[in-house]
Write a protein that binds this DNA or RNA. Sequence first.
DNA 1: CGATTTACCGCATACGATTGCATAAATTTA
DNA 2: TAAATTTATGCAATCGTATGCGGTAAATCG
Lengths: 347, 347
Amino acid sequence: MTKESNSQQRPKPVTMRDVAKMADVSQSTVSRVLNRSASSVPIGESTRLKVLEAVEKLGYHPNLHAGSLRGQKTRLIAMMIADIANPFYQAMARAVQDVAHARRYDVLVVNSDHLAENEQLFCESMIRRPVDGIIAVPYHLTTDDLDDLIVRTGVSVAVLGQHICHPQIDTVGCNDEDATCDTVRWLIEAKGHKRIGFVGVKQAFPPGKRRYAAFVRAMQEAQLPIPPEYIKIGDWQVESGQRAMCELLALAEPPTAVFVCNDQMAIGALLKAQERGLRVPEDVAIVGFDDIPAASWVRPNLTTVAQYPTKIGTQLAQAVFERIDGIAVGERRLFHVSCRLIKRESA
Amino acid sequence: MTKESNSQQRPKPVTMRDVAKMADVSQSTVSRVLNRSASSVPIGESTRLKVLEAVEKLGYHPNLHAGSLRGQKTRLIAMMIADIANPFYQAMARAVQDVAHARRYDVLVVNSDHLAENEQLFCESMIRRPVDGIIAVPYHLTTDDLDDLIVRTGVSVAVLGQHICHPQIDTVGCNDEDATCDTVRWLIEAKGHKRIGFVGVKQAFPPGKRRYAAFVRAMQEAQLPIPPEYIKIGDWQVESGQRAMCELLALAEPPTAVFVCNDQMAIGALLKAQERGLRVPEDVAIVGFDDIPAASWVRPNLTTVAQYPTKIGTQLAQAVFERIDGIAVGERRLFHVSCRLIKRESA
DNA sequence: CGATTTACCGCATACGATTGCATAAATTTA
DNA sequence: TAAATTTATGCAATCGTATGCGGTAAATCG
């Protein structure tokens, strides 16, 4: 098409110097016209117009890499989440992107897959390519890891997860522990369940740990036993929920209700129970966590603890941009996006 | 925590000069040690070790912005999709990210929301911050728009969508038109449907246009009428599927089968039909498109034309990296990832 | 009318890394 | 032993932009 564009050799881009030449001014004048920022030198109206005209005529666009090198803003933020394939993170990612794009920032999206190794790689990437802001859902990273990043690159950071406590890192937390506890109590008191199973994830994951602790608390309060075989470990995916339910149903005395740590696993559990011919919630009640869209698509609808990833993402993005813009400078801010039980049909 | 890290002023990063000073060599020597790549100048073993030691001791990481400015690789690719909240794109995004991260490339993710304006903004962004590669699902962008991008920045591009035809842009296409046609024929011939509705999207969208054309073809072949009120326009979202089904069911003589252009809308239609007390597929059959995970979570399972976003994403990413690496240099390559009907319960 | 302020603009340098060219030392060859 | 190579390293320009500082002309002042 059109010209013979040779992709091997990077073409010469239109630079400020080209604009300067055409407008017959110096390159620095072009720069000043384009970012007629505060306190700088004033620019004559006629030159301003000459420059603007040349910019238009040449189709000039400033090179962001150059600005980044000069130590200006990079107009780039990075977001580290566990897995973009998870509807929870996907909604969060979308919210963050919306806030960022509205300010003409680009967003780097990185999946950690809950792997410590990937989280470290992420940090390294951020040192290699400094960005203005970082939004992360760390599972393994410590406060010190993030501090190192801040000290080295001066980046602004906001995270989801209460286990990070750093004077310059804004944090969004949720009351998932209380919500879990309340939900289990409700299963016991309002629904009369006594044999309750739990499908969680590895204790290495802060939310997994918290929710398990809350589950234990509620059960102990009610003086109910927690047989070890009622506790199953999944990996957040649908299939692991199916496996867990399989094992629970194979027990001599299966639980009458199961609390599952996220909706994907809960859906897996639900499908498996139905496949085995059980009625939900009559034979076995199921509660999930997150309230992903599919939770209200399955039959019976999933009773679940709703989280609000869009709110969380928006909050994180706003927090990080406030620090980038220097609007927020002081101490760590702790935001709260609460979750709450949505009672539907599955329990 | 630890030191008093001042985020207002960007801290001085560890640079090559620092390494050079510690190793007592020139900065260019450090550079050569670090990328002893090409057949460049040889380096003495003892200096090499000195430098490496200093790198280790200082925790040096090269600054990618600097390399980008010098016209080297940016180690950055961008991906423009319609909406990361759509399971189809989300799976594609994940595949692209996996390929990219394996090569230590970062990925910029941009949502167009099917809006022409956003697609243009995306192009502008890519001019401002040149990247090595672009993977896009363009709905409004023309071949010329992309050509402009290539001419100006030398970027490598791969797209999903047959309507882009450019000598340097690798393309992934699918046979959605044939698959649609075959599916409608199957509804007619194998299932005996005569009144078939269609839930599509605006004709401005190439896939919407193609699938509608295929639907018309199949119906005309079978000499079946296509009443205008059987054709509904949605926006790819669940809610629009519900609305469309609402309208179809309100007709004096509603269709006995509905072909829906994506699974999200199909699920909306399914839920609405059930809400109205209809049995699927007995009272109304529903066919979707994409085979998103939720298609097999709903009851009845969705009969749908499966696409393979992971394959598509992987293919696009590989194609673009082959161009970036100069492995592929010649003419446009056309790849094919076919889709096929998955017969389940809803039709 | 000479001196000082004001308004406007250009020169030069810096950001961090790559790379062609020059150079010094070590080695080989004639 | 001198000349030609080879080997190893440094110098300096460059990428595109931002900005401190200095310079020039016009405007204002005494």
